[in-house]
Design a protein around this nucleic acid. Structure first.
Lengths: 208, 208
DNA sequence: ATTCCCCTGTGATTGTTTTCACAGTGTAAT
DNA sequence: ATTACACTGTGAAAACAATCACAGGGGAAT
């Protein structure tokens, strides 16, 4: 299994989703140029990305949707399940829960954490909310490695540190703050303010 | 003004924010390696990025925070203000509002839109919510170019089309769907599910 | 059977982004 | 005055990513 770029990984994840959709629509075969239209990725790029999975399509019938899907999953997924925890049950945390209910077999939200006593022990979308100080215990026993940081900016760093101390190894950070954490922790920044500013920059360009 | 990469734009926006913070802390000078620590960007990269703004620092004192900030703003900002509208006032839309209240002089949320009669005409964080069918009128009169798409996946494409028809030229898309829109419209995808899956991929790697 | 066609997989190429490395600069210390 | 120093700005190199372009393959049409 050789090194592969972050961009390729994102695209593979995207292909996987699209293939899953196709499967539920009973489409069993697909060509790279069709997948291209569904993903806004060039067909050459798609073929290149798929190389790493080892799966080969047929020049005549294209790719078998089910087999390709399995091949991508084998490449991307870790053996066994991975747990996800949400830190912060404000609007953002709840909206993530909402979007997440799409069936994601190997990835499951197992717990939420908040300090607000009104939220603790409530169950939302089938997920129970715990006190933040219970995090270490629950994360260890439930095999949770992914944490979604959805708290106000003011406390983002403290909560992130707590997440790491509790055993989280990958963080999805929505707060507009750079987190200082040990280097072996993977952090994906999804800074909401920055995203708006970026769109503002590119949307004005078109006006001229 | 020459071509510059998307990544550079994102970083410039980040530098701008950090510099703004420094200014409120009354720090007036900064070296590239200090900014590097605050942003997780190498100092060489920072100097390279700053080239496009035309601003030059002093080899002795580093950069003047205020002057550099102004220089970046001159480069990034359009003359005049830009309006932002939020489509969908569920949890996600409200959380964007919450994060946004940081002072953003040239970028302002001017309206929200929703079809739910319970939400229409309510005012949240100082932003009024309108009926979706009022969008075209309001967007035209209020100089709104940026739209944040925060609706359920099911209706994302329809609302996006409506946004474009109403005059929006840049869309920040949080739904896990690729939008089909005219090519001159800028779309920034911030697919929430994909982000979680990506973190899951990279967080497992560290465990081995 | 032969030709044609459209697809895949991939080596080669092109294009882009990041890093390296160093000349140039101005202050401070001796 | 001279030297030493720590930084910037940037050409050049390296690393990385996307695209091109074509050999190879097999079904369909003639």
């Amino acid at each position: 299994m050789k090194k592969i770029s972050e961009k390729s990984i994102e695209r593979l994840i995207l292909y996987r989703r699209i293939l899953g959709n196709l499967l539920t629509e009973n489409q069993s075969k697909i060509f790279s140029h069709q997948l291209s239209r569904l993903t806004d990725v060039t067909s050459a790029q798609i073929r290149r990305d798929l190389m790493v999975t080892g799966y080969s399509g047929s020049p005549v019938h294209g790719y078998d949707v089910e087999a390709l899907l399995k091949s991508i999953c084998d490449y991307i997924d870790t053996p066994g399940d991975q747990g996800v925890a949400i830190f912060g049950l404000g609007h953002l945390g709840r909206s993530v829960m909402g979007y997440f209910n799409t069936r994601q077999p190997r990835l499951k939200i197992k717990a939420a954490f908040d300090t607000d006593p009104d939220k603790v022990n409530r169950v939302l979308h089938g997920i129970r909310c715990y006190r933040t100080d219970q995090a270490k215990d629950i994360i260890e026993t439930q095999n949770i490695s992914v944490g979604i940081l959805a708290v106000p900016q003011r406390i983002a760093q403290d909560v992130a540190t707590l997440m790491v101390n509790s055993g989280i190894t990958g963080i999805l950070n929505y707060a507009p703050t750079r987190l200082e954490l040990p280097p072996q922790i993977y952090v994906e920044n999804r800074d909401m303010i920055l995203a708006v500013e970026k769109v503002a920059y590119y949307s004005k360009k078109n006006n001229t």
